[in-house]
Amino acid sequence: MKILIVEDEVALAESIVQYLEGEGYVCEMALDFLSASRKVHDYDYECILLDINLPDGNGLDIIRELKAKQKTAGIIIISARNSTADRIMGLDLGADDYLVKPFNLSELSSRIKSVLRRVYFSGNNEIIFNEIRVDLNAIQVFVHDELVQLTKKEYDLLLFFLSNKNRVLTKESIGENLWGDYADTLDSLDFIYTHIKNLRKKLVDKGLDNYLQNVYGIGYKFNTRLTDETTS
């Protein structure tokens, strides 16, 4: 999977690359409109992260270029602008998602996975990880091919963890991903614990290893390595 990151702020672009490479993607950076335009022209990418405010051009023109060449890349706009008009314009041109700065890298990773699934696996839409199988069309989760009854929030939570395996996810980023504006950093985020506890219990009850681990004081981690170590 190749991802192009178009972002003029080097420090941010490098952070994104570092995080996404950890997820197993191949990443390339373009720091201005010209190099982005050239890269899009010469290569194919599965996903493009696009900052629309570039010093030498408007990122939206890159979308137009892609659409003109009929390239099938998932496009996620990353922008400091948060108005409905900006969103609508981007999405109308053919962007798949719109993420407002500043964002969590875990959130970005989860959006990329979702966009890639939509663009490339529209038929058979499943996530399989060891004994877990998630049917994204039916919104159902199976462990050892046995259906697990999850609430909507528990389902979303599991997807968020599966998109960010072996990552420390803070309570704040989980709150932001699942509850959006309704839970900000100001609120007590204890309610997240209840949902995680329930999800963990339901999964473990079906015979799943305990991947969901507490990271003391800050959040949670879907740890797949620990189980590798214990089983091997």
Binding site: E9, A11, L12, S15, I16, Y19, A80, K101, P102, F103, N104, L105, S106, S173
Partner: peptide, 8 residues
């Protein structure tokens, strides 16, 4: 955004 990404 940079600060947030770096801490993460």
């Amino acid at each position: 955004s940079v600060m947030k990404a770096k801490t993460e």
